[in-house]
Design a protein around this nucleic acid. Structure first.
Lengths: 332, 332
DNA sequence: CTGTTAGCGCTTTCAT
DNA sequence: ATGAAAGCGCTAACAG
């Protein structure tokens, strides 16, 4: 049997559909008696309102679309957790969409979201989505997380990746490391570029020779980079990977190669995913508080949708977390 | 400026809305010339169809609702990754909803999904949702993953947790461990119960004394259990945790306590999350192939929605993965 | 091939 | 306080 509609309920309760709507939505201009009658009828029919129709009529979907890059592992789950927490606190649903590399798909995904969400959270450090999105859906509010393009008119949340990377290099140098190799993130990725930039700047400041190995933000990429490093070490005594997953891949690879991580070679990452604490030795990293960014993004887009228009950008500063992977003995 | 509607496009192209709809949806009964005119008008106006209205009219939302328990970490991301992969391959959107313990919220979440999704994937080993869901939304297709209740009429995907746990105990015994302690999963959780059941059965079969410490599926829970174990060891030489996160928590705790994991105490988990391979020593576990379950669930609900009604349940058998955490020397 | 129109299920004026 | 009716944006008969 098909689903009961508001009309069925009205018929059964011998009232108009308008009254059913009012009664069920808790308006106060309904006699208690009628409201009760409607509720009974609704229950008997197993009536559940059709959210799609409702949102068409209200011009409000009570849902937020989320576009994420094809993230792996904990970074992904942390972001989503944060968003979900904020969303359900506000009674909003989350429409999720991962981008599988292809910008075409991103466009498509956004298109199919229009009319089904009230706003968008977009995390797309790989693509130049900002202008893209605007072309696609003007008047659909969106907030960007760590996006590459500089659209000052769209609200954004950014992490100060460059300063974070600089701080990490400073820490490594303080600890006594000198030949610090950077494993870069994916090419074309805004965050990767910023972190590499920070690394280079700090190395220059310390009068040290930079050395960058290409990477891709994945664990395998980190492992490969570590192998490349082992094959051609050139006195390297520390690895600073552009994110934790690569740092962990490198750490495991070096560990398996019999190298005393922390001592013989220091390793550092970026993000502070939960795993960073669990790996052995614990991974020194820059804490970004991923879930918090997710929650914050969602709260801000919700506020914007509600008309509380605060369009200033947010700039977050990651925080150094020192663990055993950079525990070089005091004497260098 | 507000969003352009199909009417605006029609007006601008000097055609009827029906023609616009046909032209844009690629129907073949449109003169190429007219189609082009429509496309131009649509582009000029930045027209993006309103998916909500579309799905109301089509009685098809092209979206699947996903309800997950409040999962942490990689289990969550793996499931969602699998679903997302399958969904975007089929052109479906994913409406995500985590349940925050409270069954009330689960009910609510499902209610607000009605009329906005074509089907539901529900993973709720904690709650007796099956009947619940049916009451809430008869005629909304749903597939259950590892649900507790036995509703034979709903399609399900289950993991043979009991057999998996038995297999793990067998492996531990084969390897030479005898005093195997089980860290149980969350109370009221169907999977936890099955795994404990399997553990007990296998221990009985081997004529060994079972010992169960309560847990909750979290890393902290595993760490606490390990501490309890250290405080009152009673000759325990192996720990079999009901999932990997707890196993890892225990592993780290024992490692930090200076115990040679694998040798002095064997540790095993369940799920084979990516992290299991990365931790040191590598964690012996039962591989469940989480992402695959997600993808499979999504594909099946999509098939059901499309009318390809295959309502038989699926029963998956986890697979033993041996790593260093149970590498007791041959001589016991 | 194209336009007119009914209707998807709901909310909300506008009357009464 | 309640009902009748318009309309949210779209698609799909039905005519022509």
């Amino acid at each position: 049997m098909a689903h009961a509609t508001i009309r069925d309920v009205a018929r059964r309760a011998n009232v108009s559909v308008a009254s059913v709507s009012r009664a069920l939505n808790g308006h106060d201009n309904v006699r208690p008696e009628l409201r009760e009658k409607v509720k009974v009828a609704a229950r008997e029919l197993g009536y559940v309102p059709h959210a799609g129709a409702r949102s068409l009529s209200l011009a409000r979907a009570h849902a937020i679309g989320v576009m994420l890059p094809d993230l792996h592992g904990e970074f992904f789950s942390e972001v989503v957790r944060g968003m979900d927490r904020a969303a359900s606190a506000r009674g909003l649903q989350l429409l999720l969409s991962n981008m599988h590399a292809d910008p075409e798909q991103a466009v498509d995904a956004v298109r199919t979201m229009r009319g089904r969400v009230d706003g968008l959270v977009i995390m797309a450090p790989d693509i130049d989505t900002a202008t893209l999105i605007e072309q696609l859906s003007p008047s659909l509010p969106a907030i960007l997380i760590n996006s590459r393009s500089d659209t000052p008119d769209r609200p954004r949340i950014r992490v100060d990746n460059e300063a974070g990377a600089e701080a990490m290099v400073d820490h490594l140098v303080d600890t006594g490391y000198r030949h610090i190799v950077h494993i870069a993130g994916a090419a074309c990725n805004a965050e990767a570029a910023d972190r590499e930039q920070g690394y280079r700047r700090a190395m220059r400041r310390h009068d040290l020779e930079p050395r960058v190995i290409a990477g891709d933000f994945t664990e395998e990429g980190g492992a490969k980079a570590a192998e490349a490093l082992l094959a051609d070490r050139r006195g390297a005594d520390a690895v600073f990977a552009a994110n934790d997953m690569m740092a962990i891949g490198a750490l495991v690879a070096l560990r398996d190669a019999g190298i005393a991580v922390g001592r013989e070679i220091g390793i550092a990452g970026f993000d502070d995913i939960p795993l960073a604490r669990l790996i052995s030795p614990g991974l020194t990293t820059m804490r970004v508080n991923i879930a918090d960014i997710g929650a914050s993004a969602l709260n801000r887009i919700a506020a914007i949708v509600d008309g509380d228009d605060d369009t200033d950008s947010e700039f977050r500063h990651p925080e150094l977390v020192v663990r055993a992977s950079t525990s070089r003995r005091a004497e260098q």
